[in-house]
Design a protein around this nucleic acid. Structure first.
Length: 369
DNA sequence: GCGATTTGACCGAC
DNA sequence: GTCGGTCAAATCGC
């Protein structure tokens, strides 16, 4: 078997993607270090990072699938041989296949991950702005669910063929929680990046110096951590949950229907500190990290006087139909980063983990199985 | 008038 | 056969 070569080629691809993610993390750090940066800049950068990490996760998953199919089960229907004849490994091909997965009713082969957004007020409508532009194309009542599920696709689907879609469903258990399941990856993010970059003309061309803000140093630490994990993936999760304390949330909801407006801006208690949950999304690539935040507003200064969102990452590997949960207990630094960035104290909350030793990605490395 | 949303129908996966 | 996801015509709002 040539799994070694295949995995190696696949890893190169993954590393390439993660290198992009590293660069995006660096840019996020620069944004955070720039007092002129606005929340939308953070959101855009965070969304791009999230997207990149999702791609890496998908590629990794494909590599694993490719190597696992011939390693463990001795399957004869591996797509390896044809690829080898053309100089491509099965792993690389599989990873590439992940990126060109055609649309279908149920996209089993596409990476799929869920963000749980907790809104501070159950009466609020709309879904949190994740940095991308979405267009709603359907809504459906789901069996066993109190609330209908909204279906959204990327606004640029027709123009750029972006396959990204998301489903938004309000939680039955908690009216403040929205489950947002993303599927497919934005191929339009290049343009989004440009838009964000142009929109953020205040962004400095370079801030390679050490961030003065400790929280930003932690952020950069996250970047480094990402790099380390990229180089030596060994610990992985598939379900991360990052809760951003919303502050008081109660109020029952009336008959629910998703509003026309597909995004709702984050609110900030004060200043332009990176307290938006989109940053959390960046911290939470497809994977499973659970950050629980207590509902009491005093635990989350950023929520006082304003509103913020809990963000939960819950990655599901669609191809295998399995879900693996993992915490990020080893990433206390991450919790600290998030705490600093959001103003919420996650350090004491960042402690649940159902780690899957087979997953090659660290908390920020994204989902993988 | 144009673009986005709504909603019933259709299709495919399970 | 059931249910989830998507399509597309109708409708709405700017």
């Amino acid at each position: 078997m040539q799994d070694g070569a295949g995995a190696e080629g696949g890893m190169q691809l993954i590393l390439k993607i993660l290198a992009d993610g590293e660069e995006q993390a660096r840019r996020l750090g620069e944004l955070a270090d720039d007092p002129r940066s606005r929340p939308e800049h953070y959101r855009g950068a965070a969304a791009r990072l999230q997207c990149t990490l999702g791609r890496a996760a998908a590629a990794a998953k494909a590599v694993e699938a490719a190597s696992g199919s011939s390693r463990g089960t001795d399957r004869s229907d591996s797509p390896r041989s044809a690829d080898e004849s053309s100089g491509r490994t099965a792993a690389v091909e599989a990873a590439a296949a992940q990126e060109r997965q055609p649309l279908c009713k149920r996209r089993k082969g596409m990476p799929r991950w869920t963000l749980k957004f907790r809104v501070p007020d159950a009466n609020l409508e709309g879904t949190p702005d994740d940095g991308f532009s979405w267009r709603k194309y359907g809504q459906k009542d789901i069996l066993g669910a109190k609330f209908p599920r909204g279906y959204y696709r990327c606004t640029y689907r027709t123009q750029q063929g972006c396959p990204a879609t998301k489903q938004v469903q309000r939680s039955d258990a908690d009216l403040c929680v929205f489950d947002v399941t993303y599927q497919g990856e934005h191929t339009c993010h290049q343009k989004q990046r440009q838009v964000a970059a142009h929109g953020g003309t205040q962004s400095p061309p370079s801030h390679h110096e050490q961030p003065q803000d400790p929280s930003m140093q932690l952020l950069m630490g996250f970047k480094d951590a990402l790099k380390v994990e990229t180089e030596a993936p060994r610990l992985h999760h598939d379900n991360h949950r990052d809760y951003y304390d919303p502050g008081p949330a109660s109020a029952p909801a009336a008959p629910f229907s998703f509003p026309s407006v597909t995004t709702m801006p984050f609110h900030h208690a004060a200043g332009e500190a990176p307290d938006n949950p989109a940053a959390a999304a960046a911290f939470s690539p497809p994977g499973t990290s659970y950050f629980s935040a207590p509902p009491a507003p005093h635990h989350c200064p950023a929520a006082v006087g304003g509103s913020c969102y809990d963000v939960v990452f819950d990655y599901e590997a669609a191809s295998a139909g399995t879900r693996v949960r993992g915490g990020a207990a080893e990433s206390s630094e991450l919790g600290e980063v998030v705490s600093r960035a959001t103003g919420c104290d996650y350090s004491s909350l960042y402690n649940h983990a159902e780690l899957d030793p087979h997953l090659p990605f660290a908390p920020f490395g994204g989902p993988y199985q």
